[in-house]
Simulated scan of single mutants.
Amino acid sequence: MTAIALITAPLDEATRNARVYRGDILVFRQLAGMRALRDRVAEHLRRVMGDDPESVHRAMNGAGIEAASNALRRDLGRDEAIREALYAALREAGVEPGRTYEDGLKLRVQPPAEGARGIVTEPLGAHRDTWGSNVMAQTNWWSPVMPVTAERTIALLPAYFARPVANNSTGWDLAEVLRRRRKGEPLDDYPFLPVVEEAPDPSEAVAMEIEPGDLMCFSGAHLHASVPNTTDRTRFSLEIRTVNADDAAAGRCAPNVDGRAVRTAWQWFRRLSDGERLGGMV
């Protein structure tokens, strides 16, 4: 049975991962690294989106917010203070940098529903990240930059962790997505990432109201989605995915109950300690 646990001390790699692989949702409370990361990201947000970033949708249209969000993602990726704070937070949670690989910190920006139209800002439908990566040892990490509410956050559907759901991952090919993006071709008729084909029961959704400075840890196999933003404030959050190399090699992982993509995206992940890739695409 899935448990949602508040954690106030590091969990060693084996213990934490075993809990994640069986479906537990862990919230590491008020990590010093996450507070430093939140403050640094907030500086970038105010620089680009004004003194009140949560009101950016009143000053910019959807295309402008998408462009600014993409620029911010690039800026965060070049900021060494961001990387140091992120890695410090992961170490506080018990992550071992020499055996753990990550796919890069992502900023997600979700304005109120009418302002969300791009890859960075569009609310995400219900999906498992593992439908795209095929890496069943994948762990997801998520944290809000500014306070969230149940109407402006991420939702998990823990009842579906071991329950198959209809989805469009069958035959989905990451190589096709990459080919189209390299050539500038549209993805209108091809999913950027696989999603459900039928909306799950909304009563099963758990809207996660954690605090800035908290860091939520859950399996990439958990079904999850954006809560459509029905408030008058833009939501800013951070996410990253990790893989423990020993677990991946040994087959210690979450169950694959319904993923059918044709490739495994090992190349998404780089080792925290030195940037070495986990592997190629197979």
Rank of each mutant, 00 (worst) to 15 (best):
M1E: 14
P10L: 12
P10C: 10
T15Y: 11
R16Q: 09
R16F: 05
A18Y: 02
V20Q: 06
Y21V: 02
Y21T: 00
R22G: 02
R22H: 07
G23P: 01
L26A: 08
V27Y: 02
R29H: 15
R29C: 13
A36T: 12
A42I: 07
R47N: 15
G50R: 06
G50M: 08
D51C: 06
S55I: 05
H57T: 01
R58P: 00
G64F: 11
A67S: 14
N70H: 13
L72F: 10
L72N: 00
D75T: 09
G77A: 08
E80C: 10
R83S: 11
E84F: 07
A88F: 08
A89D: 02
L90A: 03
A93D: 00
R99H: 13
D103H: 10
K106A: 10
A116T: 05
V120T: 09
L124I: 08
L124P: 04
A126K: 00
D129R: 02
G132F: 04
Q138G: 02
N140V: 11
M146G: 10
T149W: 00
L157I: 15
F161Q: 01
A162P: 03
A166D: 13
N167R: 04
N167P: 12
S169F: 10
A175E: 15
R182K: 14
G184S: 09
E185T: 06
D188P: 00
P191N: 09
V195M: 13
I210D: 00
E211F: 03
D214W: 00
M216S: 07
C217Q: 08
C217F: 05
T231E: 11
D232N: 13
T234Q: 05
L238E: 03
E239K: 08
V243M: 02
A245G: 11
D246W: 07
A250S: 11
G251E: 03
C253D: 03
P255K: 02
N256F: 04
D258P: 04
D258W: 03
V262T: 14
R270H: 11
R271F: 01
D274E: 05
R277Y: 10
L278S: 03
G280H: 14
